[in-house]
Simulated scan of single mutants.
Amino acid sequence: MSVIIPGMNMNHERVSFQPQNDNESLLSRWQNKAMENLIELHNKAPVWNADTQSYVLNFHGRVSQASVKNFQIVHESDPDYIVMQFGRVADDVFTLDYNYPLCALQAFAIGLSSFDTKLACE
């Protein structure tokens, strides 16, 4: 999963992003590698656990059930800083944690959109 969000200025304020046409959208700019004032985040790759014979992520106790919907988002420059994590804690209950540079609305939108891509996985 890749996440593209507007960048931040030196005062840690979000850069205004108002595309005037389809060529200026976040998706178009990402496809054209025009990433000025944009931040690109990715899901963290799981690591192999020999005990469970599976790939796992460390959610530090915040996620209690295995699910294909569980994920963590990081920036490639600091893969140890978890910008966002989303995971299952019960049959129809999920937890969502987020950090700078995401805001609550962005984190919620990312979490919500993750359901659309994994409908038939479980």
Results as ranks from 00 to 15, higher is better:
28 S>Q: 10
9 N>I: 02
85 Q>T: 07
24 E>C: 04
122 E>K: 01
114 S>P: 03
63 V>M: 04
44 K>S: 07
88 R>C: 05
36 E>V: 08
101 P>I: 01
102 L>W: 03
14 R>S: 08
92 D>F: 09
87 G>I: 02
121 C>G: 11
51 D>H: 04
47 V>K: 08
58 N>A: 10
118 K>A: 13
36 E>Q: 09
30 W>E: 03
97 D>C: 15
58 N>C: 05
37 N>F: 02
93 V>Y: 10
58 N>E: 14
47 V>P: 00
104 A>P: 06
63 V>N: 03
109 A>S: 12
114 S>Y: 11
60 H>L: 12
95 T>Q: 13
83 V>T: 08
45 A>C: 09
33 K>T: 07
84 M>L: 15
21 N>M: 05
36 E>I: 07
12 H>D: 12
50 A>P: 00
116 D>Q: 11
13 E>L: 02
41 L>R: 02
78 D>I: 10
109 A>W: 05
97 D>A: 15
43 N>P: 02
15 V>P: 00
99 N>Q: 13
57 L>R: 09
50 A>D: 10
56 V>C: 01
21 N>A: 00
25 S>P: 01
84 M>H: 01
23 N>I: 01
41 L>H: 01
116 D>F: 11
112 L>I: 08
7 G>Q: 04
117 T>A: 12
72 Q>L: 06
10 M>I: 11
76 E>F: 07
65 Q>S: 11
47 V>I: 15
30 W>P: 04
24 E>P: 08
87 G>H: 03
11 N>I: 02
108 F>H: 14
1 M>A: 11
6 P>Y: 00
69 K>W: 14
99 N>D: 13
66 A>H: 15
107 A>P: 03
4 I>T: 12
41 L>C: 07
118 K>H: 13
56 V>S: 03
44 K>G: 00
65 Q>L: 15
8 M>S: 01
120 A>K: 10
68 V>R: 10
75 H>L: 07
40 E>P: 00
6 P>N: 04
96 L>M: 12
79 P>Q: 09
72 Q>W: 06
5 I>R: 09
122 E>P: 05
73 I>W: 06
70 N>V: 03
7 G>M: 03
75 H>N: 11
90 A>P: 02
72 Q>P: 10
53 Q>N: 13
58 N>P: 06
69 K>G: 15
105 L>G: 07
40 E>M: 07
1 M>L: 11
23 N>G: 08
20 Q>V: 07
52 T>K: 06
35 M>C: 07
18 Q>R: 13
119 L>K: 13
113 S>H: 12
99 N>K: 09
86 F>P: 00
66 A>E: 15
48 W>P: 00
111 G>P: 02
12 H>F: 13
